[in-house]
Design a protein around this nucleic acid. Sequence first.
DNA 1: TCGCGACTTTGCGCGAAGACAAACAATCGG
DNA 2: CCGATTGTTTGTCTTCGCGCAAAGTCGCGA
Lengths: 231, 231
Amino acid sequence: MAQLDRSLIAGSPTFAGMPPEALDEILAQASALRLPKGEAAFRQGEPAERFFLLLHGRLRVTRLNPQGQQMVARFIAPGDMFGVAMAIQVEAYPGTATAAVDSLALAWPNAVWSALLARHPSLAVKTMQSLGARLQDSQKRILDLSTQQVEQRIAGAVLQLAQQAGRKTEDGLLIDFPLSRQDLAEMIGTTLHTVSRTFSAWEAIGLVECGRQRVVVRDRAGLQKIAKKQD
Amino acid sequence: MAQLDRSLIAGSPTFAGMPPEALDEILAQASALRLPKGEAAFRQGEPAERFFLLLHGRLRVTRLNPQGQQMVARFIAPGDMFGVAMAIQVEAYPGTATAAVDSLALAWPNAVWSALLARHPSLAVKTMQSLGARLQDSQKRILDLSTQQVEQRIAGAVLQLAQQAGRKTEDGLLIDFPLSRQDLAEMIGTTLHTVSRTFSAWEAIGLVECGRQRVVVRDRAGLQKIAKKQD
DNA sequence: TCGCGACTTTGCGCGAAGACAAACAATCGG
DNA sequence: CCGATTGTTTGTCTTCGCGCAAAGTCGCGA
């Protein structure tokens, strides 16, 4: 395998601040994984044998319930660790991670995990914080699902995605990966129809601009107002 | 303060397997906290200055959104750590923990946390696992909220509570703490009215038996069938 | 023991949003 | 360049469950 440069992982919050030799040692055990758009890093229910770091691209994590209905659990950005099932004592991946665009990841065999933990205590702390952040996010989503109207939830999701993956353009803030109405619907627990209708209405009053798998936020403040309003 | 016995914490999964001296050392830094029914261990938004272990009783954790709507995030059982905000780098408690029945907890000042982590690496691992379990649970709730009907969600919540806090009686499995229709409604994102109606219907066909803040599961299999059904 | 407050039940009407349906783009591979 | 596939829009109809309202009941504290 080609030599991997330590700069690949130094930028990730998980490994930030580690001495260069440690980074090299960690990298030596990783293998690179090319993920063309649409390909899965792992699938729900598969035995969790590896954990990953996304270097480039964007992954969509989906979960299927026993009745076959699907939801989008989260999007993974470059620098994020994912598939860390063994950290939380889970035997099988609880979801499926699919490349939303051509992506590149590093993968480590599970066995590496406990060795890393032992040698680098900061890793446990960082992982704890990352899990904590995801937990916070999940709790917020539960609260939103329980208490907010669909339109408010769509606004919230779009704003969050814009913040997480926004790229400035002349028109506004472009969400920088293909995002279908269906994806958005599965993120917030509604149907693509409702999302589509809402977008049409928003487009008419200049809040957003959108096309096929493409969303541009034109009026962030306006969306925030919708997300927060209570009537 | 009265001397605390190490058996108090040895039973908690977080501290299980630690040598007795370590337990004693940890206990020495704890203070006991009596929580009469209705009293809060901490409130949402308060600066997080302590973390806790529930010894006895049951706490209800609620979250309020900016519009003032409330939800029940989880119930804390004896042996659970809670208020571990500092572990996930959060300045303020994200929710309010109220005693559902007279309860007893241990409390440690935040400063103890990093020292404990450094001396007892297993603590990080255990905390990670507990966060992981909560994350899994949250994700499941999101999936349910997004895809399941209200009746299925009520059934699911009741079954979960029965498993977590069930006590066998001659009539069936009693949920062993006061649980109002309102609580249940806030757990699954509906109104107390709908919960009440559903319970009336279930009671009529013998699935459950219930009274004021009281639920007894009579036909577990029947509830499971409702929870899983897809039509 | 007797209120009073907290919790629960039940009825009714309405509205948000889901189901179904069908037409319409845009993209891609051949 | 064309057809197939995938994604999007829009319309209509239906319905679940929420909002509102009011009455009923249980239990605790005075």
